[in-house]
Design a protein around this nucleic acid. Structure first.
Lengths: 257, 257
DNA sequence: GCGAATAGTAATGATGCATAACCAACGTGA
DNA sequence: TCACGTTGGTTATGCATCATTACTATTCGC
């Protein structure tokens, strides 16, 4: 029934994706790539079936074979965006010596920033005002994808915690409401084999996200244009530093980068 | 020529706005109010002349008498949004005892937050991805309005500085690029009769903005839904506290609110 | 009151989404 | 190898919306 789910259908033959399935998957990828390209070219986050089809040398109704409606395609685009962001961040983190915790923290922040600056439309797609008609499917794939991406930050704190490198976060109160995230979500967000993250560091995780996200968001949309690129870089370094220091994450005594 | 500027036109008859001018100004206000209402009702930041007109009991082409094109109306909406935000923040600040600096800081942050939560569309309009076709007029009114709003934060630091209440911000490097914002902008952003803000506090001003903005942006777009309203409040308090502490702004030793 | 500027309407053309009906191609099984 | 069913695609249709042109009515100011 659901066209988009036929590709990764379970039960069938996991070893051998049939020829048709491969062709279908390729077309789906091409649709998404085309949609993404149009988003970049035009600086918008909404999509027009007719335009995508035209760009692909197809006709609009054909796309309905692959996505039942606009929202389904949008959902796929959002999930892809979250996953791409998460992958880029994870990749950046793992490219740094595991013992260099500050380096990993900086790499994660820098990857987040670079991704946003490189793809403002995708950034807006997942972190901006939801598109007019769009309603995210309840408890659906977008939420899960968001949690996967968010987990990258949490994993970093967990890792530092397991190495006993976390200092106490710079906060006076740890609020009860933040002690326990919903259980099922916690399962998703906690990497296998890791103990639970102490509540104060979960809170630190969220404040870190906020701080980094604020700079990145303002920069991405051009609100720091008046301080120039060098100013932006300097400000970013400062924000990263403050984020690490306040969250209890290891940071060199006078390190600037 | 420029329809939107006829209302606050200088030079003309300052004492006596003619009947036509008054009617015209009223209509312009109604257009903007209607546009804003539609934005709220539909959760979108773009505008459709036809819809605005219909809502006003008019027809679309009539609006072109007041705004030459969509961009002109958008510019007016953006300026109004910045001004409203700035006013609300200033208002909140001035409602607190001038000697209670932490209270003022919190009030400003809370006003920023409340404004964003109350008007997500306006928030997106000025802090989100620019609308597809729209190009902000160079050196135009939007930039000035943005600076006026931003000045509220700067003024708060200036005031604390004049009272000798500022501690050193928690940063190791003050970057040259941030030392001198462009001169003309500095004129706009510095309230009359105040000495210049030392560079490290200008930097602190920007980091404060980033930190607060990050939380507010994520919360406004529903990314903190999973921690619930109490969790959001707690997180906000923490972020405000961290912002004040890291920026050198006065904050009680163990104050939570 | 008269004329010009201003406000408003009706008609036009273009575009987009979505669906239905129809056609082509491919691959599997007899 | 040939026919049939599944899948992919196009043309045709209905509906809705928006910006603009050309035209009409109103209203102010002298």
């Amino acid at each position: 029934m659901d066209a988009t789910q036929m590709t990764d259908d379970v039960g069938g033959s996991p070893a051998r994706p049939t020829r048709r399935e491969r062709a279908r998957a390729a077309t789906i990828d091409e649709i998404k790539e085309t949609a993404l390209r149009i988003m970049h070219e035009q600086g918008r986050t909404d999509l027009k079936f007719s335009e995508i089809a035209r760009e692909m040398g197809m006709t609009a109704p054909a796309l309905y074979r692959y996505f039942n409606d606009r929202d389904e395609l949008l959902t796929a685009m959002i999930v892809d965006a979250y996953d791409d962001l998460g992958n880029k961040v994870a990749q950046a983190r793992e490219a740094v010596d595991p013992d260099d915790l500050p380096g990993r923290f900086y790499a994660v922040a820098a990857a987040y920033r670079a991704w946003a600056n490189r793809e403002p439309e995708r950034f807006a797609l997942i972190f901006g005002l939801p598109l007019p008609g769009y309603v995210a499917p309840e408890e659906g794939p977008t939420t899960e994808a968001a949690q996967r991406a968010m987990m990258q930050l949490k994993a970093m704190f967990l890792d530092a915690g397991q190495r006993g490198e976390l200092r106490s976060p710079m906060i006076t109160h740890v609020d009860k409401a933040l002690h326990k995230p919903a259980k099922d979500e916690d399962e998703v967000m906690t990497p296998a084999g890791a103990g639970p993250l102490p509540p104060e560091f979960f809170q630190a995780c969220l404040t870190s996200w906020s701080m980094l996200h604020g700079f990145i968001s303002l920069e991405t949309y051009g609100h720091f244009g008046f301080i120039g690129p060098e100013g932006s870089d300097a400000l970013f370094n400062t924000v990263v530093q403050l984020t690490a220091l306040t969250s209890g994450y290891p940071w060199p005594a006078d390190g600037d980068s």
